[in-house]
Design a protein around this nucleic acid. Structure first.
Lengths: 111, 111
DNA sequence: GGCATTCATAACCACGTAGTTATGGAGTGA
DNA sequence: TCACTCCATAACTACGTGGTTATGAATGCC
């Protein structure tokens, strides 16, 4: 049962609807109804997705009249990226070797 | 039910045991038994974690004698990182562009 | 051949998740 | 005040997930 920060963030990102919600929030804050419109799901389903995103720290919410505005909070995505960055050198091993080669040549330009 | 590539990868990363498995595979290929040793879980539990990781394309497996070696395949992590990179400019809110702020204000004209 | 080791799979359980419909509360506006 | 809009929550269903134990297949070794 994953309850740490990274697990919660990755778990929140493991749903395409929630990723689409985050993408739309890049354009600006949106209400629940506005977030719902492009999806073929009920309003309570969106409300629960927003709760998951809020629990992961990926959005913050403010009350404005009868509306509830969702605001993108991308800081947890930075932590997720930081975790993934440890594997950068394994993405393409030939790239890794190339980097090492270039570093070596730079250190010892004569050889 | 998320079945696209990104959802599968993020879902696989949403478990601390699976993230720890990937971390250990950075040192080199390991058998199921070797992967199990640091965790307080049964061998079938590890086998299923490996199946999830394989389904996400994060490891490949080869048979050697009676052992099954797991090998890190970090390419899907690159795709995950590429998705996250779209939010880099939102990590620091001071980078919010003016038109986005205006769009938000326009959407809530009344106070 | 017989045995031990390594691992996968099946069956089961507890719990989480994603969806639904129904309902009600809070704020707006006539 | 009354109606309406926006949204949260509860109750329910279906299915996924992570764990267990039990079992058996495959391989190496004697």
């Amino acid at each position: 049962m994953p309850s740490d920060q990274l697990s919660t963030v990755f778990g929140a990102l493991a749903d395409p609807t929630r990723r689409a919600i985050l993408a739309r929030l890049m354009e600006g804050d949106l209400t629940v109804g506005e977030l719902r419109s492009p999806f073929a799901v009920s309003q309570p389903a969106i409300s629960r997705h927003l709760k998951v995103l809020e629990g992961a720290g990926l959005i913050s919410r403010t009350k404005r009249a009868t509306a509830r505005l969702s605001h993108l909070e991308a800081a947890p995505l930075m932590e997720a990226t930081a975790w993934l960055a440890r594997y950068r050198e394994y993405w393409d091993e030939s790239f890794e070797r190339l980097d090492e080669l270039l570093a070596t040549l730079q250190r010892r330009p004569g050889q």
